[in-house]
Amino acid sequence: MTAAAAPALARHYRGVLPLLAAGLVLVVLASARWGAVAIAPAEMASALRHSWEAPGALTLDERIFLEIRLPRALLTALVGASLAVGGVLMQALFRNPIVEPGLVGTSSGAAFGAALYFVLGASFRVHAGAWTLPAAACAGGLLATWLVFTLSRTGAAGRGSVVALLLTGIAINALFMSGVGFLSYMARDPQARSITFWNLGTLAGASWRAVAVVGAATALGVAVGLRHARQLNALMLGEEEARYLGVDVRRLRAVVLGANVVMVAVATAFTGVIAFVGLVVPHLLRMLRGADNRFLMLGGMLAGGILLGLADLAARLLLAPAELPIGVVTSLVGVPAFVALLRQRRAFF
């Protein structure tokens, strides 16, 4: 090692990002191309051209591409990004690699909020237009996450213990998912009716509106995360050490956790609960390069999209023309990763 330690390290981290970006583009194109109907690259190009020049005269394949495939591919990339970055942020805040938004109540709370909107929204007449659904999901996500943190901190298991956090997470997840089950049982809305939608997730409901809303929430979460990347790095040393380095830990927790809940809850409102992405992606990136949070967020944004894109392709193609719930695929990848992490000594209990 020479005096060029820092630039070499920066290159070491950055070098992998263009590869991930290229991979993400390929995955997005592949998920737009393949499905129940394969769409040729030439048709994809002509669809994009015609959508400008002659929006009225699109062929069926072109319309499938523009109205179904492309929004779905983009939504998948965005949801993957928000779940992966959500995992990075949670793990940084709690200094533990086995924490992710699905384990601490955020996702199930958001699903409950969204299901509540589908079932009761019409009768409440409280409407904020396109933002009502995401707002309901955020409220649910915030409530559930807050419950998990408050209860796990005041319990006998001791302040901030990860065991207490995970156990409380199990209880709160069960509570909110049974709430979702009850609402599904009562529901008339076909989306809320499907309990599999909430439990196992699906990207079938993708629309350009969903892409816009999830995109905005993801941008918010990633921007807040990147802005605090260095402070989150300092937190790896411990709360006290971070304070000795001038970090206002309470403020950091509040801001990052808030942005994170919004990001994950909005994604969940449109796709249901998709577990394990937030666990697997940061873990892979750390094995690949290292634990710098700025890198994990930038890499997670890209790799989360890749992983979820591949999972969605598998979900659509394995049993085509039927579609597997995407949560089944992410669990197949995620559970072994979770078990592997548990077996490592690095997780604190």
Binding site: R95, L237, G290, A291
Partner: peptide, 10 residues
């Protein structure tokens, strides 16, 4: 104690 694989330089 660190839970994550950081380099000494970092």
């Amino acid at each position: 104690e660190l839970a994550f694989p950081l380099r000494v330089w970092e």
